[in-house]
Lab assay of single mutants.
Amino acid sequence: SRHTFEINGERWTVEGVSEELKEILRAAERASNDEAERLLRLALKLI
């Protein structure tokens, strides 16, 4: 499935992501810059 999210003013669209990964991306959208970066690094390990 496709998911579009915005982090630090940048929009991203990813396809074929699991519900778990979507949850991480949604958390990154709400997080501070440092926390968002940490969550994105974690998410990339899952891809």
Rank of each mutant, 00 (worst) to 15 (best):
T4I: 09
E37K: 12
A36W: 07
I47K: 01
A43E: 01
E10P: 01
L25K: 00
L46I: 14
L44P: 00
L44R: 06
G16N: 14
G9T: 02
A27G: 06
E10F: 10
A28L: 12
V17F: 07
I7Y: 05
R26L: 14
T13H: 12
E37P: 02
W12H: 04
N33M: 13
R41C: 10
E37W: 09
S18K: 03
E19I: 08
V14G: 02
F5G: 00
T4G: 03
S18V: 04
L25D: 00
E29S: 07
D34I: 12
I24H: 02
I47C: 11
K22V: 15
S32V: 06
R38N: 09
G9K: 02
I24Q: 02
W12S: 00
G16P: 05
E10M: 14
I47H: 06
E15S: 12
R41E: 12
V17K: 03
V14W: 09
E10R: 09
V14H: 02
S1A: 12
V17R: 02
L42F: 11
G9H: 02
A43H: 02
I7K: 01
I47S: 04
R2E: 12
E6L: 15
D34W: 10
N8I: 05
T13I: 11
E35H: 04
S18Q: 04
L25N: 00
R2H: 14
R26Q: 11
K45E: 13
F5I: 05
L39M: 04
L39N: 00
T13L: 01
E10G: 05
N33C: 11
L25C: 03
T13E: 07
A27I: 08
L46H: 05
L21V: 15
L21C: 15
L42M: 06
F5R: 00
R38F: 08
L25I: 06
R41N: 13
H3Q: 07
L25P: 00
I7G: 00
S32R: 04
E20D: 11
K22S: 07
A28Q: 02
L39E: 00
R30N: 14
L40N: 01
E10V: 15
D34Y: 10
A31Y: 04
K45Q: 14
L46A: 07
L40H: 03
I24A: 03
K45W: 08
R38A: 12
L46Y: 11
R30V: 14
E23Q: 10
E35K: 05
I47W: 07
G16C: 12
E6D: 10
E10I: 15
L46D: 02
A28R: 01
H3T: 08
H3L: 15
A43I: 12
I24N: 00
T13G: 02
K45C: 07
V17G: 09
V14P: 02
G16I: 13
E37R: 09
A36Y: 07
N33T: 14
I7Q: 01
A43N: 01
E29W: 02
L40M: 07
T4A: 03
D34F: 10
L21F: 05
A27Q: 14
E15N: 07
D34S: 11
L42G: 03
E10S: 08
E20I: 13
A28N: 01
L46N: 03
R38Q: 10
K22P: 00
E6Q: 09
A27K: 13
R30Q: 11
E10H: 12
S32A: 11
F5Y: 05
S18Y: 06
H3E: 15
A43L: 11
R38M: 12
E20N: 10
G16A: 12
E29N: 04
H3I: 12
E20R: 06
S32I: 08
A31C: 08
D34G: 14
L21D: 01
S1T: 15
I24M: 06
R11L: 15
I7A: 02
R38T: 08
N8E: 04
E19W: 08
A36E: 03
L21G: 03
K45N: 09
A28H: 03
A36F: 06
E15Y: 15
L39A: 02
S32N: 08
R30M: 15
A36L: 12
K45D: 10
N8W: 06
S1C: 12
E10T: 13
I7W: 04
I47P: 01
A43T: 02
L42K: 09
G9Y: 03
N33A: 13
E20H: 07
L44I: 13
G9N: 04
G9L: 02
L25F: 14
E23G: 09
S1R: 03
A27S: 09
L21A: 12
R41F: 10
A43Y: 12
R38Y: 13
E35F: 07
R30H: 12
N33D: 08
S32W: 07
N8A: 07
W12T: 02
R2I: 15
G16F: 13
V14Y: 08
N8L: 15
R11I: 15
L46S: 05
L42Y: 10
L44D: 02
E35Y: 06
E29Q: 08
S32D: 15
V17Y: 07
E15R: 03
A36T: 05
D34V: 13
L46M: 14
E35I: 08
E23D: 13
A28M: 08
L42R: 05
R41L: 14
V14C: 09
V17E: 05
E19Y: 08
E10K: 11
E37T: 10
E35M: 06
E6R: 04
V17A: 15
A31D: 02
T13W: 14
L42P: 00
G16S: 10
W12E: 01
A28W: 07
S1V: 11
L25A: 00
A27N: 11
L25T: 00
E29L: 04
L21R: 00
E15W: 14
S18D: 09
E37A: 11
E20F: 13
S18R: 05
E20V: 12
N8R: 05
E35Q: 06
L25M: 09
R11V: 14
R11T: 14
L40D: 00
A31T: 07
L40Y: 12
A31S: 11
E15L: 12
R26N: 11
V14L: 09
I24T: 03
E37F: 08
H3G: 06
E35P: 01
G9Q: 02
D34H: 12
I7S: 02
S1I: 15
T4H: 11
V17I: 12
A28P: 01
L39R: 01
T13A: 05
K45H: 11
K45I: 12
E19F: 07
A27T: 09
R41V: 13
A27C: 07
W12Y: 15
A27W: 10
A36P: 01
K22T: 12
L21W: 05
S18G: 08
S32Y: 05
E23H: 11
R2V: 15
V14M: 10
R30D: 12
